[in-house]
């Protein structure tokens, strides 16, 4: 049916051009429009959470029902969710069977501080190990440019640690030698390369945005071209 494609495309066109225009129009009406749209976006995002939760729970229920490999982990999804929901709703998040006291950490907060935060930190800390193993595997001087990359990486890593001051003092009579070279590498060739990528990305963003605004690219709408 024509309206299933046309109306969304018209909306995209209208809001896309309005968003583009907002950057050039300082009138309070333009700012008010932006505020309303942002608020609407937050509200829609809130509703979308239900879709996500349904999807998540449905997937895990299927895994448990079919006893797929790793189905036991799916039970923890429900246990964790149930625990946090119960703690959050019961007694305004405070400890069960206790009168709420100002200044005392609630049970909900406790679970966040002592379960969620350490778990997040644990996963993040794996990065240190992975960087070491990735560096070991891939930093090989196969050719001249790889050698340059390797040397730059070594200098930058070394320049970031206080030990380099001692070595710099010993070798070059300047404690800041490695830090200085490290700064130069980061400030000039590294930044130049980043900016080059950023310029290309920015042009790509404009081109892609135009394709979406004018309805040339429609894959994001789902349901076929």
């Amino acid at each position: 049916m024509w309206y299933k494609r046309t109306i969304p495309l018209l909306l995209v066109l209208a809001f896309g051009l309005a968003g583009f225009g907002h950057d050039y129009v300082p009138h309070p009406a333009s700012n008010a429009f932006r505020e309303e749209v942002t608020t609407g976006f937050v509200i829609i995002g809130g509703f979308a959470l239900f879709i996500g939760a349904y999807s998540l729970f449905h997937m895990h229920i299927s895994r448990i029902r079919r006893k797929q490999p790793g189905w036991a982990y799916s039970i923890f999804v429900f246990l964790g969710a149930a625990l946090m929901v119960c703690l959050g709703l019961w007694n305004d998040g405070d400890w069960m069977f206790v009168d709420p006291q100002p200044g005392v950490v609630t049970s909900f907060q406790w679970c966040y501080d002592y379960i969620l935060v350490p778990c997040n930190a644990t996963i993040f800390s794996i990065l240190a190990f992975f960087i070491a193993s990735a560096a070991f595997r891939t930093f090989r001087a196969r050719n001249f440019s790889a050698l340059l990359l390797l040397a730059a990486a070594v200098v930058v890593m070394f320049g970031r640690v206080p030990v380099s001051e001692r070595v710099g003092q010993f070798l070059f009579d300047s404690p800041n030698a490695f830090a200085h070279v490290s700064e130069i590498l980061l400030n000039y060739p590294n930044l130049a390369a980043k900016r080059a990528i950023l310029l290309g990305v920015s042009l790509g963003v404009i081109s892609q945005s135009l394709r979406i605004i004018f309805g040339i690219e429609r894959t994001y709408m789902g349901g076929g071209d």
Binding site: I131, A135, F139
Partner: peptide
């Protein structure tokens, strides 16, 4: 954290150099 960071950085440098020595 600087001591741990220094040790980790130095270790990565040593590993990279060792891998390259072997490679060469």
């Amino acid at each position: 954290g600087m001591s741990a960071q220094s040790a980790a950085h130095l270790l990565v440098i040593v590993l990279v150099l060792a891998a390259n020595v072997r490679f060469v």
